[in-house]
Nucleic acid binder design. Structure first.
Lengths: 336, 336
DNA sequence: TTATTTACTGAAACCGGTTGCAATCAGGTG
DNA sequence: CACCTGATTGCAACCGGTTTCAGTAAATAA
């Protein structure tokens, strides 16, 4: 906890060399006599020198910071990814700067502009809505990785989870347990994840020769409140159903509560599955069967990958698997 | 989404003035002829000029970034505060850099050093463990605000919630509902918040002339898992109890689950109250009675306050009130 | 009319690094 | 011994702003 106004010049004097030599030692980008090198390093050590980031940035053009654009800080899945990103960058010398795009194109472009203004060396977009065109422009400008979004043509700069198969597995699980009338509460209509999950759901039904009943398809917005609303309107319709596949865990929480308020038990009367597997889901009542998104891993993978990109190497990014976590919110249907 | 390598020199040429004048207009720290000013601004506008942060930082010493030290990204309360911090800074021109101290003194000092190396203009510590001495040193060096921690002598640089009275109110609520045998699952032993909450609990009991029974005091670590463990060991002791005050909501979730697993109903058999009021708590079963910590507000207040400090003004920081949210996890005791 | 301000503006010196280019030095070669 | 090489190292020119200081022209005071 000590401050220092030691500059490279001080080091140079102390070691009896020129600024240039000190700089070379520090960045080892040229051959320096081992003995000189040693002297310089000792001077650095004993004076507790730390390079001034501004000067370095101004001269070299690199900032050693990366911009992270997230959507809705405070939502469980994005928080997991952020956590992973931070972990992924610790020890690499890069510092992440976080900004919030709030799921709004214009806001997102704004904050990206801010980041560019700050001369970040790379960019990680967690989700987001901006157009492929903007994305491509961005990529031309600096190393960029998109997480939680599958962008055509970005094969090795995308980390995303296979929403389709996750939803497929979840729905299939319900079907295997005897459910035929499976409602779905979708996420935000134009949201890519939401669309994929719906497709997985539809495919699973179709593969089991169950006709998709439009009356069992409800719209939501990923919030618990929207789960409540959806269940209420579903009950109004009077259609019978024995299971609900929810866009995410928060929606599932809302759905469960709404059902309970009407005296409908979960899972005895109606089964529920969610998506995300946020931390709370193991402990709610009943513990929620859900599809686990490896948010932390995704963030970590993205960070490590970006570091490689920024160093001019290429990187391979794995497609993350969304795995079903079977818990207690789904029960077997005994007799129809 | 357009890149620009426009420098102040380009603006100067375009407007037929010197770099100095452009700089003056941009920072309006000297009188400039309105007409000249206008010309410069037009040039800036039409070329889409954006100042280079490195150059500005190097010359002025200010970075327009602030460091935010958090503990455990991904934990609900810290996430709320982060969210508030981000909101608080948007539009101020300052960008937050987040680092994670992980509730470890040495890590925390490390990351703070990193931030200092990045020449942040100010610091917000969300929670944390570092010594008052280090804190004081830090404060001498640059504007600093501590959130979620009550530091003696830092009257206007601390944002914290009154844990004592929050816990007091929660316990008192249980007492008013007829409970006498109230267990408590504490947070991490040396954690200040945990200590205050325990004191509030103890005081409420004492004020109601209920003797504090050491057998009803359990230790936990703020995790759901620790709630489960605590309940199990409480049940082993064979002591009877009708209510549990939990260190935070996650612990309450765990506790509820553990009780249910033993066939004990909440709230019919045992009442539970938590602390935090994280987003899920309204929707779990039963909706959790808990003490609301205004995390987002706290983060926002801290950010706004820090901006004032960085501008050389003083700031007044309110003590945040922790308010009891009455929901359905507490029931009246009818007959003993 | 002349002396003084006042209002603006420009030149140039930083800020603390990086980097291209030239210079120096030691060892090897003919 | 003169010449050539490669290894090292220093000089000085940036990078793109901010800020001090001096200078000019117009305005006010004497």
């Amino acid at each position: 906890m000590k401050l220092n106004d030691i500059t490279i010049k001080d080091i140079a004097e102390r070691a009896n060399v020129s600024k240039s030599t000190v700089s070379r030692v520090l960045n080892d980008l040229a051959i320096v006599n081992p003995k000189t090198r040693q002297t310089v390093l000792e001077a650095v050590e004993s004076l507790g020198y730390q390079a001034n980031v501004f000067a370095r940035g101004l001269a070299s053009g690199r900032s050693m910071t990366v911009g992270i654009v997230t959507q809705k800080i405070g939502s469980p899945f994005y928080d997991m990814m952020m956590q992973g990103v931070i972990q992924g960058f610790t020890g690499t010398g890069y510092s992440p700067i976080f900004v919030d795009g709030q799921w709004e194109q214009s806001t997102e472009l704004d904050v990206i502009r801010t980041l560019l203004g700050r001369k970040v060396d790379g960019l990680i977009l967690l989700g987001g809505d901006i157009s492929q065109k903007d994305l491509d422009t961005l990529r031309d400008r600096l190393p960029t990785i998109v997480v939680g979004r599958d962008v055509p043509g970005w094969e090795n700069q995308c980390v995303y989870v296979d929403n389709f198969s996750g939803a497929y597995d979840a729905t299939r699980h319900l079907i295997e347990f005897g459910h035929r009338n499976i409602a779905i509460i979708r996420g935000i209509t134009h949201h890519q994840d939401a669309i994929r999950r719906f497709q997985g759901y539809a495919q699973a039904l179709s593969d089991a020769s169950i006709e998709l009943d439009p009356d069992l398809v409800l719209d939501g917005n990923f919030s618990a409140q929207s789960g409540i609303l959806a269940i209420n309107s579903l009950l109004m319709r009077g259609k019978s159903f024995s299971a609900v596949f929810c866009a995410n865990d928060m929606v599932a929480y809302g759905a469960r509560l709404a059902l309970q308020r009407k005296g409908i038990r979960v899972p005895e009367d109606v089964s529920i599955v969610g998506f995300d597997d946020q931390a709370e889901s193991s402990y709610v009542s009943p513990p929620l069967t859900t599809v686990r998104q490896p948010g932390v891993e995704m963030g970590g993978v993205a960070a490590k990958g970006l570091v490689k990109l920024m160093q001019g190497e290429t990187c391979e990014l794995p497609v993350m698997k969304a795995e079903l976590q079977r818990r207690e919110s789904v029960s077997r249907i005994t007799t129809p």
